[in-house]
Design a protein around this nucleic acid. Structure first.
Lengths: 229, 229
DNA sequence: CGGAATCCGGATGGATACTG
DNA sequence: CAGTATCCATCCGGATTCCG
């Protein structure tokens, strides 16, 4: 019978692979590690996973002692998180990321992997986590080239210490507009292209008030997995 | 369509997962990293993989620039190996192993994962690699409890700098007999149980000439992934 | 013998629709 | 919003066969 289960090996790599060498599983753990807690947020960070498979993976990972699940304090739904064992998986994810950064750099920014929604979602999470949101209300517009016009414009709205993604002009003072090709922006995010280089070559254009332009490189944070010099 | 390909994400973890988060793939890389080069050796280290899947994985990994394949210099067959990118995957495997050692220790020595053939194969490879084989001819007998009698006896034959596994008494001077339950031996191999403790508790019995008994703990090397104190 | 192709049945995953 | 249910394509395990 094609009964697919474990590998039947005592090797610790085999044991880890029984959990991690399964489609989507490392990415589910990544999303939880990067701070998503709600089912809908997980789906947003994993746009191509089917709902059925996501809930199956969450169940498997709970059973393996990697994921926690609790009813949300604020009303409805559930809140997911990582156990200690789940948090301890980060070195595995990190070494996977380092390997790809060193050996698959071009693959990551192939056409099929460029996704403005996903990029903005990641940028938002990282900017929000870096604790820079102040009391000042302020919106930064992002304009991506090389994508369908329906997905080309986003606003990051800083307000009350939160950072929100808007798909329409939020009406707040837009002190800054960032324009770049989606590939350029993704390469910057991944650390493949220094922000300063892109600005100097005019592959990334900053428009707006001078103080806001100068401030951009302070609050705009790269991916945790970005290549650093 | 269930067209399964990439994840459509620019994230480096996703790129690495496209390669590694596939059944058997991490273990194929592990075997190559640990020194197996021939198809038959790979199958011996991966006894439950089907031949079709192994050859498919090897082809995929060649295409991904991780595995090399060349006709064997000595006559027939092919020799497999790792490219630089393949060797660079070791930190990923190592962190997987460390994670399992820290968080799945009991799972690894469950009944279904105990395998005397596989254990001897791994011990042989590691002992041979540690360069201790001398000009002296010498056989060490291993006797495992808790397994069918057909798989309970093995001899490690040291001869001419090589180490060979025999399933029958090779006839050479067997200066040493090691007797232990297969679980005990596996736990020692993984570093879960110190050799000295097992000997002291008489969970592992060394019989033979005094010099050979004393020598055992010098040439018997634990897994690369063994837990160290 | 080493390395791989073929076929089959069962398991897994993707797409879509549906439910509380 | 947070998942299930269903259907079908694909993947995998096991056996057999093939080729050089």
């Amino acid at each position: 019978m094609g009964t697919r289960q474990g590998y039947g090996q005592f090797c610790p790599i085999a044991r880890a692979a029984e959990i991690l060498a399964t489609r989507w599983t490392p990415l589910v753990v990544r999303e939880l590690y990067f701070g998503s807690t709600r089912y809908a947020d997980l789906r947003r960070g994993l746009p191509r996973i089917s709902s059925a498979l996501l809930s199956q993976r969450l169940k498997e990972l709970q059973h393996a002692g990697i994921v926690t699940c609790a009813p949300a304090a604020s009303g409805s739904g559930k809140v997911y998180g990582l156990t200690e064992a789940g948090l301890a998986l980060f070195p595995v994810l990190e070494s996977m990321g380092r390997w790809a950064q060193a050996h698959c750099r071009e693959d990551m920014t192939e056409d099929g992997n460029l996704d403005p929604d996903l990029l903005m979602w990641n940028i938002r999470r990282r900017v929000a986590g870096s604790g820079m949101a102040r009391d000042r209300c302020f919106a930064a517009a992002f304009h991506f080239l090389g994508v369908p016009s329906a997905k080309s414009r986003f606003w990051l709205l800083f307000r009350g210490g939160e950072v929100e993604i808007c798909l329409r002009d939020p009406g707040y003072a837009t002190g800054l507009t960032v324009t770049a090709h989606i590939r350029t922006m993704t390469q910057i995010w991944l650390g493949h292209l220094p922000l300063e280089t892109a600005i100097r070559r005019r592959d990334l254009i900053l428009e707006g008030e001078q103080p806001e332009i100068r401030d951009f490189s302070r609050w705009f944070v790269l991916s945790i997995l970005a290549v650093r010099d």
